[in-house]
């Protein structure tokens, strides 16, 4: 009953500096602290698996975390830590250049959840089935992290280190994610499989980004898969199967096989391992076909 001395607290810092100092102070005092953005994962956890008291640090008053920047310059695309899925799906600039990432954000939960859930929260929650993680990886997204030792950047594929484990250290939080503005004739797509049409967690998923040259040949590709391993995976073999091809059926199928080969899924209430291995290939093929079609249209 050691918990009896600790209580819940709620704080709403107004700057990055204040947030970092709140988080660092708490951690050095041994007080459990958790960042709140959309809250759609945090509140479910509080309700069920992890009801213990903690200090909840609501970052929504920090100006930087509410920003969406879309720039053709080196700054690229920035999506702040408290930007909701709904904000992304309503953002015409984002939809135009990163349709796959916006699709992934759109797939997080219901309309109600969309109104609160954030891209970065989905990332930090680090679920193997998190929808936005493969889509962020295919788009070469990098986390911008602030902490007691200043700022640092970490590619998304390195940020998620295990099942519901991320690379944040004590006192740190993610201010936002940044990714390059896609070049001409580059497009992405994201697909997941769920038993219903909505309201489920991905059984398997695939994000694909392809770049076409003037002849319509794939000159660059990134493929990432989700829900088939402890973390979302970048699958270079699948990308290699696409590069140099016209993204014809045979190369899509080869990319699919590479995804199956890269996966190491489990059997659980959402699907069997055998099923996930098969379906991840189908999703990769279909997402690649969709990305290709988009790239051709650009």
């Amino acid at each position: 009953m050691s918990q009896s001395t600790s209580n819940f607290a709620y704080a709403m810092p107004a700057s990055i500096t204040d947030t970092v100092s709140l988080l660092s102070q708490a951690s050095s005092n041994g007080v459990r602290c958790q960042v709140l953005a959309g809250g759609t994962d945090l509140l479910v956890q509080l309700r069920s698996v992890d009801p213990d008291p903690r200090t909840i640090v609501d970052i929504k008053s920090v100006p930087e975390v509410s920003r969406v920047e879309v720039s053709n310059s080196e700054r690229g695309v920035f999506i702040g830590g408290a930007v909701s899925a709904a904000t992304m799906t309503h953002h015409e600039g984002l939809k135009a250049i990163l349709p796959g990432l916006v699709e992934a954000a759109y797939l997080i939960g219901s309309t109600q959840i969309q109104g609160r859930a954030t891209l970065v929260g989905n990332l930090c929650n680090a679920s193997p089935a998190g929808d936005t993680i493969p889509a962020l990886i295919t788009n070469q997204a990098v986390c911008e992290i602030h902490g007691p030792r200043g700022a640092r950047s970490l590619p998304v594929e390195d940020f998620v280190v295990g099942v519901q484990k991320n690379a944040l250290e004590a006192g740190e939080f993610v201010v936002g994610v940044r990714m390059p503005h896609p070049s001409a004739r580059t497009a992405d797509a994201y697909l997941r499989f769920i038993p219903r049409t909505e309201m489920d967690i991905a059984v398997a998923s695939a994000g694909v980004s392809v770049t076409l040259d003037d002849a319509g040949v794939c000159s660059a590709a990134r493929v990432a898969i989700g829900a088939v391993a402890p973390t979302a995976l970048l699958v270079p073999d699948a990308a290699d199967a696409l590069v140099g091809s016209t993204l014809d059926e045979a190369s899509l199928a080869a990319a699919g096989r590479a995804c199956t080969a890269a996966s190491s899924p489990i059997s659980d209430k959402r699907g069997t391992a055998a099923y996930r291995r098969k379906v991840v290939a189908v999703l990769c093929e279909r997402a690649a076909a969709s990305a290709a079609e988009r790239a051709r249209a650009r």
Binding site: Y10, L36, G39, L43, V44, D58, S110, Q112, R116
Partner: peptide, 10 residues
């Protein structure tokens, strides 16, 4: 939004 997924303080 779902009122169950928001803190009242928010």
């Amino acid at each position: 939004v779902c009122a169950c997924l928001m803190l009242a303080a928010e």
